[in-house]
Design a protein around this nucleic acid. Sequence first.
DNA 1: TGTCAAGATTGCGCGTCGTGCCAGGACAGG
DNA 2: CCTGTCCTGGCACGACGCGCAATCTTGACA
Lengths: 211, 211
Amino acid sequence: MDALPSLRQRNRDRTRDEIEAAAFALFAERGFEAVTVEQIVAAAGVSHRTFYRYFPTKEDVVFGEHGEAVTRLRAALAATDPAEPPLRRVRRALLATQQPGRRPEREVARARLIDASPAVRARSTQLAEDFEALVAEQLAPAFGGGEGGRARALVVAGALFGALRGARRAVAVTPALPPERAVALALDLVEHGAVAVSEPESAAAGDTGAE
Amino acid sequence: MDALPSLRQRNRDRTRDEIEAAAFALFAERGFEAVTVEQIVAAAGVSHRTFYRYFPTKEDVVFGEHGEAVTRLRAALAATDPAEPPLRRVRRALLATQQPGRRPEREVARARLIDASPAVRARSTQLAEDFEALVAEQLAPAFGGGEGGRARALVVAGALFGALRGARRAVAVTPALPPERAVALALDLVEHGAVAVSEPESAAAGDTGAE
DNA sequence: TGTCAAGATTGCGCGTCGTGCCAGGACAGG
DNA sequence: CCTGTCCTGGCACGACGCGCAATCTTGACA
């Protein structure tokens, strides 16, 4: 599939990565808002115009290939067992896609940037709308289909990603909280309601243990 | 309290309202993105610079006095009965604050703009972070307090406002769905989990069967 | 009523983001 | 080697948002 990266493609990938690397380095030392696109391209050795050919906005350089991520989630959803309850399928697909992350240092830097910059955060939720739409589409038939099912699916998908945003925030504020625990909390909440997370360990522990 | 509007203040209010009115009119006929600040201020008869003294960004003209809204929610939360379950108190406070709306025509226009423009939507969720923080603060002790309670409260608050965003979207897509019904759906979901909204009318009865 | 400080409006200029356009250089295939 | 295609670079432009200083309006006090 990716057997022949075709020099041209390799150059593209290299340029893109150089821009990203330069940007992350600058963001790390000065913060997102204090870095201009001009400075990024100077550090990366490309032109102002080239930057925008690879990234639609300055914020987008923080998030890797978004289109690819959407495709991965779609594939992961399609690969789940139709016999399982729908929310469980969504949970599995989410865990499967966000799992690997081939560039751990950028992952944590990304989380830090999202937490620190409102603009980056705004773009993050904007991009998340695509995931939300995918999940809602997947969930609609499970809630009876038709207009009503679609409406309920939209609400559930919104709650799910809202809970995940809250979980990210919780991790940022609570160093002792492991990210997987926070994500599990968010998923449990949407499945079983606030009561499921109101008790510290009992119910939630059994639930996540089965996973 | 507001007995003496003090001519100066009245002038301020009038100017502000003229800008808002001009903006909403232009947005209605051309859409948010196609209208420039320059055109708004020309229609309102004020200068470019004055606009930004009233509204931090172009998006903010869509949302009335945000600071006031935050204050209202804070007051509404404080006014709820401490004996009631915490999420019920939050529900009451939310319903109480978003209820009146002294400018119905702008309310529906606002909803339309949020639905149509990604930038406005992004600003909307950005402003909602303030409400979210308020709710999380209120909820934290109910989830055990301390770091753990605060973390769980953040997740629940995130889910709540995510569900409300989903509800707004559902209303936009489903003309037959009354807004109050959608909001109730969102609140029920966060309280009782997805099972609570999986069946059209019945309350949360059997939890494993439907899933 | 006259004067004066505080507040409001305005114009000017600037930095930054993001885009359209077009010329020039690198790559793929004959 | 030649030719079409892709990529890059440079230029100019519109729009957003802010800092600053000058001007005008309001309110308070003598």
